[in-house]
């Protein structure tokens, strides 16, 4: 296995494994809570955080992380209790974060290769220090998700009941958003700002319609996240193409294959295929 004989490839595989694991886990909640635009918004807005890091000459990943958490909390605060529609708030942060990034970058003199790595993703340039940072974020997010998994599932399904049962819904929701923000940072390192949101949606979207229980959806999501990461990295190495694009295209391939498979199963009349809500919508079915 020649590919593993290089240190940069070993680090790249480790980074992809961590990003794949984390993104697929969070994508489960992103899809169930319809937070896709939130992921895209945060991943683009953190360009401002990256630019601050470059400006202050500190690792842009650190400033991006802090900036992402700030944006997630700001979006969460402004949208909770229906004060403003999430789409509107995310749209504002999406644009203003990018604008701040472009503004600050244009003030810089000289060439900053790390900036382009973070914009378009260059997993081959991941350093050992980056890996430690990724590992720390991964542990932090996974510990939160594992401990509070059932509560996060409960607020995703029926927030009103969760609140009536005494769960701290707002705290859990904000925790989910902060986890999402930290995962975006991990994703940015591997895929870049432009493509970071892809791994926050596609893995779980692949399993969403195929699976009838959350456990299988979560495992399929993990499989797609890790599978597309490794496959994409291999393709990138063989064809000498950017790794971010190769990984996202592999994930998209899994998604379209799953949808085709579902349609074929549906046409064959398999109960796994064409499952839809009962006639008349979600709540108007008739007693069996």
């Amino acid at each position: 296995m020649e590919i593993f004989s290089y240190g940069f490839m070993q680090r790249a595989f480790l980074a992809v494994a961590m990003a794949g694991l984390l993104c697929s886990t969070l994508s489960f909640f992103v899809v169930l809570n319809r937070l896709s635009f939130m992921g895209a918004g945060i991943s683009h807005a953190i360009l401002g955080g990256i630019a601050i890091g470059v400006l202050l000459d500190i690792n842009p990943l650190y400033t991006a992380g802090i900036f992402a958490v700030f944006i997630a909390l700001a979006i969460g605060t402004l949208t909770r209790n229906g004060r403003m529609h999430p789409d509107t708030v995310i749209g504002v942060f999406f644009a203003s974060g990018m604008a701040l990034g472009v503004f600050l970058i244009s003030l810089q003199e000289g060439y900053h290769p790390e900036l382009f790595s973070l914009l378009f993703g260059n997993v081959l340039a991941v350093t050992a220090q980056d890996l430690w940072f990724l590992g720390g974020l991964k542990v932090l997010v996974l510990v939160f998700v594992i401990i509070f998994f059932k509560e996060l599932l409960a607020i995703s399904f029926d927030e009103e009941l969760a609140r009536a049962n005494g769960l701290p819904v707002s705290v859990l929701y904000m925790g989910m958003l902060v986890s999402l923000a930290l995962t975006v940072v991990v994703s940015v390192l591997v895929l870049g700002v432009v493509l970071a949101a892809a791994l926050l949606v596609i893995p779980a979207a692949t399993g969403h319609r195929l699976c009838t229980n959350y456990r299988s959806m979560l495992f399929l999501s993990l499989g797609v996240g890790l599978g597309s990461g490794f496959l994409g990295l291999g393709v990138s190495y063989r064809l000498d193409v950017p790794s971010g694009a190769a990984i996202v295209l592999c994930a998209a391939l899994f998604f379209f294959l799953s949808q085709s498979g579902r349609s074929i199963l549906g046409a064959l009349g398999s109960p796994k295929g064409g499952r839809e809500a009962p006639p008349g919508g979600e709540r108007n079915g008739h007693e069996h």
């Binding site: 409960a154 009103e160 959350y214």
Partner: peptide
């Protein structure tokens, strides 16, 4: 408590038993 019209994502991957168990997810 049985709330009115809980709104959830279509095709939420839960079994009937999973939904019932959620009644015990309390503080």
């Amino acid at each position: 408590y049985m709330p009115q019209h809980p709104t959830f994502t279509d095709h939420f991957p839960l079994s009937a038993e999973d939904v019932v168990l959620m009644g015990t997810y309390t503080a």
